[in-house]
């Protein structure tokens, strides 16, 4: 699925590159805010929904090959985090909704 379509369907704001050509390879989703638990439990190609916005979410996402990060609850994201996401090519999206609602929408989309 294209990143732009994905963001539009879920009403997400794209914080990183908005290139039309960016394709997402997604096979599921994981919700979590404790980094060690996410590391151990989230699977590669997952969508990761979290309220953490610290720079280190990118290290975790990169290490376990997360496809896309969605920041829930309209949490403020620092420029450092956004720049790092751009640098490593990790799509970083933001939602006004809570993690549960985002997860429900993903489910409706067949993820």
């Amino acid at each position: 699925m294209k990143l732009l379509d994905f963001a539009e369907k879920l009403q997400l704001e794209i914080m990183t590159e908005k290139d039309e050509d960016i394709e997402l390879d997604i096979n599921g989703a994981y919700v979590g805010d404790l980094l060690s638990i996410v590391m151990g439990k989230a699977k590669e190609k997952n969508v990761w929904i979290t309220i953490q916005t610290h720079l280190n979410i990118l290290a975790v996402a990169e290490l376990i090959d997360i496809s896309v990060i969605i920041i829930a609850e309209d949490m403020e994201i620092s420029d450092d985090t956004i720049n790092k996401a751009k640098e490593i090519g990790m799509p970083l999206l933001k939602s006004k909704e809570d993690a549960y609602k985002i997860a429900c929408r993903l489910n409706e989309m067949g993820i």
Partner: peptide
């Protein structure tokens, strides 16, 4: 608050 300190560090190392 930064998402660390879940108490899963050593258990994760031991597990993997």
């Amino acid at each position: 608050e930064l998402g660390f300190g879940a108490g899963m560090g050593l258990p994760n190392m031991n597990r993997w």
